[in-house]
Measured scan of single mutants.
Amino acid sequence: LETFPLDVLVNTAAEDLPRGVDPSRKENYLSDEDFKAVFGMTRSAFANLPLWKQQNLKKEKGLF
Rank of each mutant, 00 (worst) to 15 (best):
Y29P: 01
Y29H: 12
E2D: 12
F39V: 01
L51R: 12
L57D: 01
T42R: 04
E60Y: 06
W52V: 09
P18E: 04
L63S: 02
A13I: 10
F64P: 06
R19I: 14
L6Q: 03
N28M: 15
K53D: 12
T3A: 08
T3N: 08
T12Y: 07
K59V: 11
L6K: 05
K61Q: 08
N48S: 15
G20Q: 08
L63F: 10
A37Y: 12
N56D: 15
S44R: 11
K58C: 06
K58I: 07
Q55T: 14
D22F: 03
L9P: 02
L49E: 05
A47K: 13
L17H: 03
K58P: 00
N28D: 15
K61D: 00
V8P: 02
E15Y: 01
K26P: 06
L9T: 03
Y29I: 02
F35I: 01
V10Q: 13
F39P: 00
E60P: 01
R25P: 02
K36S: 14
D16G: 09
E27P: 02
L51E: 10
L63V: 04
D7E: 13
T3K: 10
K59Y: 09
K59M: 11
E27K: 02
R25F: 12
N28T: 11
G40L: 08
K61A: 14
G20S: 12
E15L: 06
F39D: 00
A47C: 09
A14P: 14
D34T: 07
Q54R: 11
Y29D: 03
R25D: 03
L57S: 02
G62V: 01
T42L: 08
K26R: 14
F39C: 01
M41W: 01
Q54E: 00
A45Q: 14
E60Q: 11
M41I: 08
F39I: 04
L9N: 02
A14K: 11
T3V: 13
V8R: 12
K36Q: 15
S31Q: 03
L1S: 13
E2A: 12
T12F: 08
L30Y: 01
L17E: 03
V38W: 03
A47I: 11
L9E: 02
F46S: 00
A37K: 13
L30M: 06
K53F: 13
P23W: 01
E27Y: 01
P23S: 08
N11D: 08
L30W: 03
R19D: 15
S31Y: 02
V21S: 03
N28W: 10
N56A: 14
K36R: 13
E15H: 12
N28H: 11
N48R: 11
K26L: 15
P50L: 01
N11K: 12
N56Q: 14
K58T: 02
K61V: 14
L30T: 01
E15G: 11
D34V: 09
G20Y: 11
F46L: 01
W52G: 07
L9R: 02
L17Q: 03
V8A: 11
A45V: 11
A47Q: 12
R19V: 15
R19C: 15
A37N: 13
S31M: 04
A14V: 11
A47P: 00
K58S: 03
L1T: 13
D16I: 06
V21G: 03
L57T: 03
L49W: 04
K36D: 12
A13V: 11
K61R: 08
F4M: 07
N56G: 10
S24P: 03
E60G: 06
V10H: 06
L9A: 03
D22A: 04
G40K: 10
Y29C: 06
N56V: 14
E2V: 14
Q55F: 09
Y29R: 02
K53M: 14
L51H: 13
R25L: 09
L57V: 05
P18C: 06
V10K: 10
A14M: 11
A45L: 08
L49N: 00
K61Y: 08
N28S: 10
L30D: 01
D22E: 06
V38S: 05
V8H: 08
L30K: 01
A37G: 09
A13Y: 06
T42E: 14
F46N: 00
P50Q: 03
L63A: 03
V38C: 11
E2C: 15
L6C: 07
E2Q: 13
P50R: 01
Y29V: 02
G40Y: 04
R25N: 09
V21P: 02
E2M: 14
S24R: 13
S31E: 04
G20M: 08
F64T: 15
D32F: 05
F39T: 01
T3F: 13
F46A: 00
K59F: 10
K26D: 03
F4E: 03
V10I: 14
R19N: 14
V8W: 13
D16F: 10
L30A: 01
K61W: 05
T12H: 09
E27A: 03
T12N: 08
L9V: 02
L63Q: 02
L30V: 04
N48E: 15
P18H: 03
D34A: 07
R43H: 06
E15Q: 14
E60S: 10
E15D: 09
S44L: 12
S24E: 14
K53P: 00
V21E: 02
P50G: 02
D16R: 09
R43V: 03
N11M: 08
E60W: 07
K53S: 10
K36M: 14
D22P: 03
L51I: 12
A13K: 14
P50M: 01
V10F: 06
T12E: 06
D32E: 11
A13G: 09
V21H: 03
F46C: 00
E15S: 12
L51D: 10
F4W: 13
Q55D: 14
L63N: 03
P23C: 07
F35G: 00
A37D: 13
S44T: 13
L17S: 05
N11Q: 11
V21T: 04
L1R: 13
K61H: 10
G20I: 09
L6A: 06
S44Y: 13
S24F: 12
K61F: 07
E60R: 07
V10Y: 05
N56R: 12
D16S: 08
L57W: 03
K26A: 06
A45K: 09
F46W: 08
L1G: 11
L6H: 04
L51T: 09
P23N: 05
T3Q: 09
P23V: 09
A45E: 15
W52P: 07
A47W: 09
W52S: 11
L1K: 12
L6G: 03
D32A: 08
F46T: 00
E15C: 13
M41Q: 03
A13N: 12
L1I: 14
A45R: 09
K58R: 07
G40F: 05
M41P: 00
L6D: 03
G20D: 08
D32V: 06
A14T: 13
N28E: 14
N48K: 14
A14G: 09
L17M: 07
D16C: 15
N48H: 11
F4V: 06
